[in-house]
Structure formats: structure tokens, C-alpha cells
Amino acid sequence: MAVVSKSSTVVVVGADDQQSSGAGTIDLSSFDKSLGPLPITVLLVFDHPIKDPVESIKKALSQSLAVDHYHPMAGRLTPDGGAIACTGEGVSFVGASVSCALADQHLPLLKDDLAMGYPGDWCRPEDPLVQMQVTEFSCGGFVVGVTWNHVMADGAGMAQFLRAIGELARGLPSPSVVPVRSSSLLPCIPPSVVAAQRAMMAVASKDMASLDFTIPSSAIARIKGQWADANAHEQPCTVFEAVTALLWLCRTRAVVTAKDDDELPVGMVFPSNVRQQLGAEAGYYGNCLAAQLVQATTGAPAINGLVKLIKRAKDGGDQQQPLHQGAAVGWYDTLLVSSWRNLGFEAAEFGGGAPARVMWHQRQTVLPICVVCPPCKGKDDGVNVMS
């Protein structure tokens, strides 16, 4: 098996300052606090070489951490975990190499080594908010692995940050989107709900199987067709709704098999980017997610029924409940489905074109989870899911 060789970890600070101690703090919003300091990892796989990807991306990262750009990313959480201290202490960075060509079959075996991890299961206040690794393969392809503390940014915010680094790496004088980290426009989630969601996230496991599979286009088309035949006057079934309903159906069947009970309550959670609905400023890269729980029973809906429940939840209908009520369903019986297809990761590029693949990776998770990833380059035969 190929081995990833890593250089020593360095700390990348903003290009215009070494350390800005005492440069102020940014209070975490209730959206940030409700998620907790959970590490999240994205792997961007590039099959076209660029000149010296490690040094090129490290330089662009430093430029992106300038005071006028994404300086808070170089900070640390305050000791109580309630704010970001803009200390300028920097982002951890590692350059790495692999003595084999970039081939898809290698990636599932190597993904633990393609990104940096945190010392513990959760990020501590003294840990860097962001860690980055650039791994170059013998063919010239490379992987950018980024692990970050979820209280710093959601997926859309991290995708915006990576697009900015790519723009600087390609020679733009500044990011095309002006970044905003503190938003006065976001409403406050009630403290009781924040506390309940944090308590729910304290239950985490490493003891689940990791899967990487494709749902064929034919299966998606069949689900959309069944919905159209039975609901001629309703809005069409979307790809997200078809994929999510199928994943939920499969998970529900697994629960029935495991517990031999066809009347168990089962839940499905999907987070949504609600920046537009809440009027967040353009360029806001903190957390702005609304996650709702949709409930059914193991013996109830077929695929069309699940699509209907998902549609109602998306539209704000009466089938949705706050995420923290998932405890009433049960951790094992609740599936989290997160779509990364429209967050912007696939638009991050550092000089050689868009990524051939965007991969999710997590060493532990709060719930059984499926992440619907952006399309793989050259593969239009379905939707890639990592779980």
C-alpha cells in the first residue's frame, strides 16, 4: 500500500502580520454554538498538475489570512469557547507526498492520511481553527485536505474560504467575495434549544462502517418518475429529494432488520443553508444552518411517502421538528443526510482547473450520516454518496 510522507507541521500566519495579539474578538452566534467544536474534513482531489502545489497554496493561504481578508481563521477560541480571539496565531499546514499516481482506488485507503487531525475527538480552545494539508502524487495530481472546527464555519463558509485561496493562488489581488464573519442580522436561537442541540451532539461514535458508493442515475430517474405518475399536480421530485428518500428507505430497512420491529419511530435530519432566507450579509462565512428532523415509522411510507415528508420539511410544513427532538426517536434510528452538491467546493481551484472529486471525511460522527457529494469528474452515471 502507498505511504504518505509528511513534512513537519508549520504554522502559516497572515501575510501582513506575524501575530496580532489583542486584535479583538468575534462572539460566536447561536448558530455556531449549537453545532459544537466538531472537526470536519473536506478533501479536494485535483488530477491536473500545477507548479509546486505545496508552496503555491501555502503562500496563497498566508495571503488569505491578511487582516482585510480571513484573519479570524488564524485565531483561536477564547478559553470559555464563546468567541473567536483574532490573535493571528495561524493555521497549521503540512506538505506531503505519495510515491504513486493519483488513482481513485487509492483514495479510500489513504484518506486518513490526506488531512491533519486534531489531538482529541473534539477541538479544544487552544487548537487551530483550521488545518490544511497538501499532498502531491507522483503523477503531479494533488489533494488539498482541510480540517476545521465546525464552530468557525459551515460547509458553505469553508467552500468560500477555499475559493478565495484559489483565487489568490491564481494571481488575483484579492478574493472576489468580501468576507464577513460577524453578522448582526442573524436571529438568535433560544438558549434552551442551543443547549439541547449541544447535548445531543455530545453523543458520538467511531464504531460505524465507512461507505463510498454511487446511486445510479437510473434509480433516481425511476423515483422521480414514480412521483410524477402519482402526483401530477405537485412540484416535481428533485434529485436531492429522490436521493435522500432512497437513503432513508435503505437505512430504515436496516433498522427493521436489526430490531425486528416494523413500527419503530425513525427520523431523518437534513441541514439547509439559510443565509438567503435569514438575510445574512453577502460573504458571511460563519454557520448559518437550519437542521430539521422529519419522522416516520419503519412500517409506514414507501418511497413516494418519504419524498412527500421531505418536501413538506423543505417547505416549512408541519412534518418538521427541531433537531434536538431527535433524542425522542433514538440516536441509532436517526439518519443525517447532508448535501454538499451546491456549497461551492467544486468551484475551488488553484490553477489547474476544478477538482476532479470532492470527498467528505470524518473520524467520528454524531449520527449515522450520509453526505451527498458533488459529481465526480467524467462520471455522469449517478450521485456519489459517502457515509
Rank of each mutant, 00 (worst) to 15 (best):
L109V: 13
L109C: 10
L110G: 00
L110S: 00
L110C: 02
L110Y: 02
K111C: 15
D112P: 13
D112L: 08
D112V: 12
L114Y: 09
L114T: 05
A115Y: 10
M116T: 03
G117E: 03
G117M: 03
Y118T: 04
Y118V: 12
P119Q: 02
P119D: 00
G120H: 10
W122D: 07
C123K: 08
R124H: 12
R124G: 06
P125Q: 07
P125L: 04
E126D: 13
P128L: 05
L129D: 07
L129N: 09
L129R: 11
V130F: 13
V130D: 12
V130C: 14
Q131C: 06
Q131I: 03
M132P: 06
Q133M: 10
Q133A: 04
V134D: 01
V134W: 00
V134H: 02
T135W: 08
T135K: 03
E136H: 01
E136W: 08
F137I: 01
F137W: 06
C139T: 02
C139I: 06
G140I: 05
G140V: 08
G140F: 10
G141R: 02
G141N: 04
F142I: 00
V143R: 11
V143T: 07
V144Q: 06
V144H: 09
V144C: 09
G145R: 12
G145F: 13
G145P: 15
T147N: 13
N149T: 04
N149A: 11
H150P: 01
V151H: 03
V151W: 01
V151L: 09
A153D: 12
D154T: 04
D154H: 06
D154N: 08
G155L: 01
G155I: 00
G155S: 01
A156R: 14
A156F: 15
A156H: 14
A156M: 15
M158E: 13
A159L: 12
Q160Y: 10
F161Q: 14
F161C: 12
F161K: 14
R163M: 11
R163N: 10
R163W: 06
G166R: 02
E167W: 11
E167R: 06
